[in-house]
Simulated scan of single mutants.
Amino acid sequence: MGGEYPGRFDGQVALVTGAGSGIGAAVVRRLAAQGAEVFAADIDGRAAEAVAKELARAHPLTVDVAESAEVDQVFGEVVQRHGRIDVVVHAAGVDDPTAKEWIAEARIADRPPEVTGRLGDHAWRRVTRVNLDGTFHVLRAALRAMAPRGSGAVVTVGSSSAYDTQAGYPHYAASKAGAHALSQSVAKEAIAFGVRVNTVAPGPTETGMAARTPAALRHGFADPRVRPYAAPEEIADIAVFLASDEAVNLVGAVLLANGGRFTI
Score class of each variant (00 low, 15 high):
63 V>Q: 03
63 V>F: 11
63 V>P: 09
64 D>Q: 05
64 D>E: 03
64 D>V: 07
64 D>P: 00
65 V>K: 12
65 V>T: 15
66 A>C: 10
66 A>S: 15
67 E>C: 06
67 E>H: 15
67 E>T: 04
69 A>I: 00
70 E>Q: 11
70 E>K: 14
70 E>C: 04
70 E>F: 10
71 V>R: 02
71 V>M: 00
71 V>N: 02
72 D>M: 11
72 D>V: 09
72 D>P: 01
72 D>I: 02
72 D>S: 10
73 Q>S: 15
73 Q>R: 15
74 V>R: 04
74 V>P: 13
75 F>E: 08
76 G>P: 10
76 G>K: 15
77 E>K: 04
77 E>W: 00
77 E>F: 02
77 E>G: 05
77 E>H: 03
78 V>R: 02
78 V>L: 01
79 V>H: 00
79 V>K: 01
79 V>W: 00
81 R>K: 10
81 R>M: 10
82 H>R: 09
82 H>Q: 11
83 G>K: 01
83 G>R: 03
84 R>Q: 15
84 R>N: 12
84 R>G: 03
84 R>H: 13
85 I>T: 07
86 D>S: 07
86 D>G: 02
86 D>F: 10
88 V>Q: 13
89 V>H: 11
89 V>P: 07
89 V>Q: 00
89 V>K: 11
89 V>F: 02
90 H>E: 11
90 H>A: 12
91 A>I: 05
91 A>H: 02
91 A>D: 05
92 A>I: 00
92 A>G: 12
92 A>V: 10
93 G>Y: 01
94 V>P: 10
94 V>S: 09
94 V>I: 14
95 D>F: 04
97 P>N: 01
97 P>D: 00
97 P>Q: 07
98 T>P: 00
98 T>R: 05
98 T>I: 15
98 T>A: 09
99 A>W: 01
99 A>T: 15
99 A>Y: 03
100 K>V: 01
100 K>S: 12
101 E>Y: 01
101 E>T: 12
101 E>C: 09
101 E>R: 08
103 I>P: 00
103 I>A: 00
104 A>G: 03
105 E>T: 08
105 E>Q: 10
105 E>Y: 08
106 A>C: 10
107 R>G: 13
107 R>W: 11
107 R>V: 13
107 R>M: 12
107 R>D: 06
108 I>Q: 07
108 I>W: 01
108 I>N: 01
108 I>F: 00
108 I>P: 04
109 A>C: 03
109 A>R: 12
109 A>Y: 14
109 A>L: 13
109 A>T: 06
109 A>K: 01
110 D>K: 05
110 D>P: 02
110 D>W: 10
111 R>M: 14
111 R>N: 04
112 P>Q: 14
113 P>S: 13
113 P>E: 13
113 P>N: 11
114 E>T: 12
114 E>K: 06
114 E>V: 15
117 G>D: 13
117 G>V: 00
117 G>T: 08
118 R>L: 08
118 R>F: 15
118 R>G: 06
118 R>K: 07
120 G>Y: 08
120 G>L: 05
121 D>S: 07
121 D>M: 05
121 D>R: 07
122 H>N: 04
122 H>T: 11
123 A>E: 09
123 A>T: 13
123 A>R: 14
124 W>E: 07
124 W>R: 03
124 W>Y: 04
124 W>F: 13
125 R>Y: 08
125 R>M: 11
125 R>Q: 14
